[in-house]
Amino acid sequence: MTATSAVVMDADDVRRAIHRLAHEIIERHHGADRVVLVGIHTRGVPLAEAIAAAIGEFEGVAVPVGELDIGLYRDDLSRRRATSLARTSLPVDITDRPVVLVDDVLFTGRTIRAALDALSDLGRAERIELAVMVDRGHRQLPIRPDYVGKNIPTSLDQRVVVSVAGVDGEWGVFVRDGEEP
């Protein structure tokens, strides 16, 4: 299938969105002293680190960043081949602290459902919020984001790709036609 690719956000757009997400998190929490960011593997982790760096720049606080692999919590293991597991680690105990889950794209909501299960096994957070770079719609579960970089209406046969500085080269968001591989 010939896939056409459209740039929806370039590196500067993503950087501005990261800064806005950081400001929104600071505003809602009246600072960021107690907030813990938890990125979902793979691309949620560098995104969480970028947001934490921006919060550090604006507020002068070091926000702890954890990483979460939800491979063991998927509800579709029997339907797809699980690959290797990535690391799950939290630098601090999340119990009684506000947690912001960070992922690149919010789609069906199943990844977030799995992440919520995983997080509740790791501690009892005071509250859990969700930050995503792209909300592309098509939810299959009652899950909504608290912080959104950009809403991008898509059709089901499109793919949304967030490229991450350090992992894929430069920051950017692309929409591609054609089925998920």
Partner: peptide
């Protein structure tokens, strides 16, 4: 090595306050 890499992650699971996953 695939088994060893997976097992490394499962050791982390066994270290958790709730050492159990629903997989």
């Amino acid at each position: 090595e695939d088994f060893l890499d997976l097992a490394d992650e499962f050791l982390e699971v066994l270290d958790r306050p709730i050492p159990k996953v629903p997989t």
